[in-house]
Design a binder for these strands. Structure first.
Lengths: 109, 109
DNA sequence: AATTATCATCGGAAATTTACGATCAATCGT
DNA sequence: ACGATTGATCGTAAATTTCCGATGATAATT
């Protein structure tokens, strides 16, 4: 994964509203949630949340899917995986000994 | 790890200057780099970079250490690990089947 | 066809971030 | 003690982000 798309993902998740929304979508995989449900959960205005959602979509973290006049949003787990691999490479590639306990702790989850 | 500190880490890494600096520090573990070396690598002004560095330190991603009149900066690998565990929990806790390929790919690195 | 529901986009205000030069504090070398 | 080096902090201007109400576009309902 290139650093630019990782950067976009990090920036997208670096806001409470967007992080909450993404985590909520992960918990609702693979059904997803409509934009309206996400708006309600956020407690923000529809237009305000729409711009946040656009950031997540642009970063590739959320995959919108048209269903009727609703817009179903789904978390892109692969994007999350790619980000984690990108982060892991930083410490594992250069310093494998630093990565060992990290992976060990991940396996048990 | 609480979501607030994860949020701070994500926001801190969501800027090219700070992401670059952090990755550079990871590659220089465990020796670290002086602030001046980081400034030079960033190509920014000393004062500008100093504010970026403060964000990284506040998020706990970088651990400063006084040495003479220099300030040695070191990457906090544990903070990175905690972030990855936080992200992994989102998809693993709710949906273990989503996490399996993620962990599998991490192990090989 | 008209109305309603869902969601994106526009326009603009307020807040925050980013960037810089200048200054200050601390430490080192002379 | 004095000057030089290192890096944090202050003041501030420009850019970006965040938030909202209003408007538009599209699709379902009546």
């Amino acid at each position: 994964m290139e650093t630019d798309s990782s950067l976009a993902i990090l920036a997208a998740l670096g806001h409470p509203t967007r992080l909450d929304a993404f985590r909520l979508l992960v918990r609702h995989e693979p059904d997803g949630l409509s934009t309206g449900q996400l708006v309600e959960a956020s407690g923000l205005t529809q237009s305000t949340f729409s711009t946040h959602l656009a950031v997540l979509v642009k970063a590739g973290l959320v995959l919108p899917e048209k269903r009727g006049r609703q817009q179903i949003q789904r978390a892109n787990i692969k994007a999350l995986k790619d980000l984690m691999l990108f982060l892991a490479k930083d410490c594992c590639q250069g310093r494998p000994e630093l990565c060992e306990p990290l992976v060990a702790e991940l396996i048990c989850c």
